[in-house]
Design a protein around this nucleic acid. Structure first.
Lengths: 226, 226
DNA sequence: ATCAGTCTAACGAACGCTAAGTAAGCCGGA
DNA sequence: TCCGGCTTACTTAGCGTTCGTTAGACTGAT
């Protein structure tokens, strides 16, 4: 039932094997092959099931079988987009976390900032997260695992903060989920031509998140000059 | 393009003209006609575009044209479910708000509690909110207006709280949106057989929300005995 | 005689996917 | 230097199925 890619040609599931990230705050324009750009546009506007492979082919200006040649089947398009995006945010989040060098308040603030930056700079792919439920079980499991890693990372910082008496939180797992929920929602309403930059929004959400965990002190001001 | 219901027979868009609500904390089992139950199940599991009218007919054990007779077209099913649900939560939220008789902290706490209770007791319909984007422009506008009313109500209480020096919030509209985002997310993970009751979850989220708006004092304990 | 409620049957269009073929490049051996 | 075979990239044409929707006939109560 699941389509199998006969030869798995040049371009893999993810847009590139892996895009190098030097600075987790720096977002180069998303560089996706035309087919995935078209798929992203269509999935975002009409959803997975509302999009036909023919629509994607037409917009990408390739023949219909070309898509099957490269991605195996329709599901392959979604997998490529979803895993690409979640992989990127996970790598970024780890960098952000590491940068804080163990200072808990900083860790928390940077991880939240990083996540919100992703939800804005990468709003298109981030919004696709809702289409996760259309992944076939196997693909979904892999995606959910990536996602869980991000959640786990945030939860750790909350737990640490509570343990050190810096945060005041009733139930860390619930609070963490609530935080992720509110961050995720950003990708739904953010659009580029608004007056707020991603950095503005990230700042505000860090402040909101700090309150949510009952942080008693603010973290050291960011060294971002820009 | 928009289907029109030729005669608009017995059962209207909403499950019933309006279900009477006495206590906003009391949730009778959702009483939907079989067709809408089937539509709800399918929309929830496969999404709007992933659901065929035939699937709905089969599960509801009615003939295919029966659905067109009662709801005009596929879109009519979504409209009925969405407007029914949002109408209910709006009416409940107003009751909750009124019950606080102007005490700001109480207003805020009760409105949040009410919204979270909706996200759990009515998780199935609440989760359908994401399918809003598949509404045709006209239907969408109507739905968005209802939704906005709920947001407005919450925003008012936040504004009031800030004005009275009870809350500490950077930007009330952003914070309100963040709060709604985190409440909405509940409908995604809540399921009935979990260990937490809707009331438990609502309590926790009220606590989280109070922190998020930097409330200095807790509201008077609820008079709910149960 | 009317009419709301319900059915069977089917319309045309679109769907996901694939078989089969082709043109162009690469490669090691003669 | 050329050749035969293999691989990669991409096409045309169409398979079988399902889609949303409707025409039109029937039925039982008023």
């Amino acid at each position: 039932m699941a389509g199998k890619v006969p030869a798995a040609p040049k371009e893999q599931a993810t847009s590139d094997p892996e895009v190098r990230i030097d600075d987790w705050r720096e977002f180069a324009p998303l560089d996706l092959p035309p087919i995935l750009v078209a798929a992203l546009d269509n999935f975002r506007e009409h959803g997975y099931h509302g999009t036909s492979v023919r629509d994607v082919a037409r917009q990408a200006e390739v023949s219909l079988p070309m898509i099957y040649y490269r991605y195996g089947n329709k599901q392959g398009l979604l997998v490529a987009l979803l895993e690409g995006a979640m992989g990127e945010v996970l790598r970024r989040t780890r960098l952000a976390d590491a940068e804080a060098e163990g200072r808990v308040l900083d860790r928390f603030a940077k991880v939240v900032e990083c996540i919100v930056l992703h939800m804005t700079h990468r709003a298109a792919t981030a919004a696709l997260d809702a289409e996760m439920r259309y992944l076939e079980p196997e693909n979904r499991k892999k995606y959910a695992a990536l996602r869980k890693e991000v959640e786990q990372l945030l939860l750790e910082t909350v737990d640490e903060g509570v343990a050190q008496g810096l945060f005041e939180v009733d139930r860390a797992p619930d609070t963490t989920r609530a935080l992720l929920g509110m961050c995720q929602a950003v990708s739904g309403w953010y659009h580029t031509d608004g007056s707020l930059t991603p950095e503005d929004i990230a700042d505000r959400y860090v402040a909101i998140a700090l309150r949510t965990v009952g942080a008693r002190v603010r973290p050291a001001p960011r060294s971002r000059a820009k």
